[in-house]
Simulated assay, not measured.
Amino acid sequence: MSADTGELDLLRPRLAELGREPGPADVAGEMRRLGWVVTDESLLHTMEALRRDATGAGPLDPLLRLPGVTDVLVNGPEHVFIDRGQGLERVATRFADDDEVRRLASRLAARVGRRLDDSSPFVDARLPDGTRVHAVLGTLADPGTCLSLRVPAGRRFSLQDWVASGSLPAAGAELLRQLVACRAAFLVSGGTGSGKTTLLASLLSLVPAHERLLVVEDSRELSPDHPHCVRLEGRPVNAEGAGAVSLTDLVRQALRMRPDRVVLGEVRGAEICDLLTALNTGHEGGCGTVHANSAADVPARLEALAALGGMLPDALHSLAAAALDAVVHIRRDGDGRRLVAGIDVLVRDGRTVRAVPAVGFGPRGLRKDEGCAALERLLAR
């Protein structure tokens, strides 16, 4: 008999009465009491199922171990998807019911001291192994409890890896190397799951070894291959509604830690005000990522985020014009492949800043655009 789909509920009550971690002999004895056929294979299978259900990610564990998986998404008990870099794929994995999804989500949240129940029906946290977990209970979501797992990269990607995969032409990789080398301040823009963080980590790995990186993130995802990297991670409120550490707090702390480059893993709120202020006070080479549909949308996105910090549009555009040099945009094509689209330069246009296309990247190499001369001046400084 399989112990994968509900039969574990028959095993748990007696095993729980032991008051200790059950061993193979305990599990085998309970299996025999239930009339199950006990073989070496069935015992190992049941022990593994119990381990996954108690400490792992339950039926999602095998999916998390698949090569190349970056995301595992659960939409209620019957709809499970994975992303292996080619877009979302539906898989055969199922849960018995919504209660099973909810139990798994609650247990994952509890592993990092977070609560997930009717009084706190959603959670965003990072597990000890670096996996980012987000959950929304079925009381708010249809078709049931939703669980999103973002898997940390199993290896670091170099720019050469991007070239080898066809996501970036070799000449484009050389321009990005020059962008880092000239200590330009830039943002990597793109949609959710487009690969912004992975690309930024690849670029940070090009920073000279003698420079000190201060990386500020809401949830730790950036892991550049660099010998002198200090990573600061924000903290949400605890169950008592206290103890939060915002990205704004961490950006201010990072500036006191003698950084050569300040990196904001993702610009998503009022912390943009502090970052732009820092980049205007001698901290060259700063960078980060931002959600945007295109590089042209980045100035408007920054304006909206700065408003959360009480900064007026004119002030934002003045600071951005002086602090930021370029935007590197990344997107997904129709097949889900990640592609670096090109580089835009940020230029002052009256009282506002706009992103001007400088170089586009395509299967045939580089395509020069309106801002190419400005980009060449930037790289030559």
Rank of each mutant, 00 (worst) to 15 (best):
R12C: 03
E17Q: 14
E17L: 08
G19T: 07
R20T: 01
A25Y: 00
R33S: 12
R33V: 10
W36M: 09
T39G: 07
E41H: 10
L43P: 06
T46F: 09
T46D: 11
T46K: 10
P62S: 04
L63N: 04
L64Y: 00
G68W: 00
V72H: 00
L73T: 03
V80G: 05
F81E: 13
Q86P: 02
G87P: 03
L88A: 11
L88C: 03
A92S: 14
T93S: 04
A96K: 08
D97S: 10
D98I: 05
E100Q: 14
R102D: 04
R102E: 13
L104C: 05
L104S: 01
S106V: 11
R107S: 06
A110E: 11
V112N: 02
D117R: 12
D118R: 12
D118F: 09
A125G: 01
D129R: 00
V133R: 00
H134D: 05
A135C: 06
V136G: 01
G138A: 07
T139G: 15
L140E: 09
L140F: 05
G144Q: 06
V151C: 00
G154W: 00
F157W: 15
L159S: 06
L159C: 07
W162Y: 08
S165I: 03
G166E: 10
G166K: 12
S167I: 02
P169R: 03
A173G: 14
L176Y: 14
R177H: 06
R177D: 01
R177L: 03
R177F: 04
L179G: 03
R183A: 06
L187F: 01
L187M: 03
S194M: 08
T197Q: 01
T197V: 08
S202P: 02
P208W: 07
A209S: 13
L213Y: 07
L213G: 06
L214E: 11
E217V: 04
D218P: 01
S223Y: 10
S223I: 00
P224Q: 00
H226T: 06
P227A: 12
L232I: 05
P236R: 05
N238A: 08
N238V: 06
G241N: 11
G241S: 09
A244M: 10
L247W: 04
T248R: 14
R256L: 09
M257L: 15
D260A: 10
G265I: 01
E266Q: 08
R268M: 06
A270S: 14
A278T: 08
G282P: 05
G282V: 01
G282I: 04
H283M: 08
G286M: 02
G288V: 04
T289S: 12
A292Q: 08
N293E: 12
A296Y: 07
A296W: 05
A300L: 11
A300D: 11
L302W: 03
L308Q: 14
G309S: 02
L312N: 12
L316F: 08
S318R: 15
A321Y: 07
A322P: 02
H329Y: 07
H329V: 14
H329C: 09
I330Y: 06
I330G: 02
I330E: 05
R332P: 04
G342N: 05
I343L: 10
D344H: 15
R354C: 11
R354T: 13
A355S: 15
V356S: 03
G360Y: 05
F361A: 06
K368W: 12
E370S: 14
C372H: 15
R377D: 15
R377A: 15
L379H: 05
A380L: 09
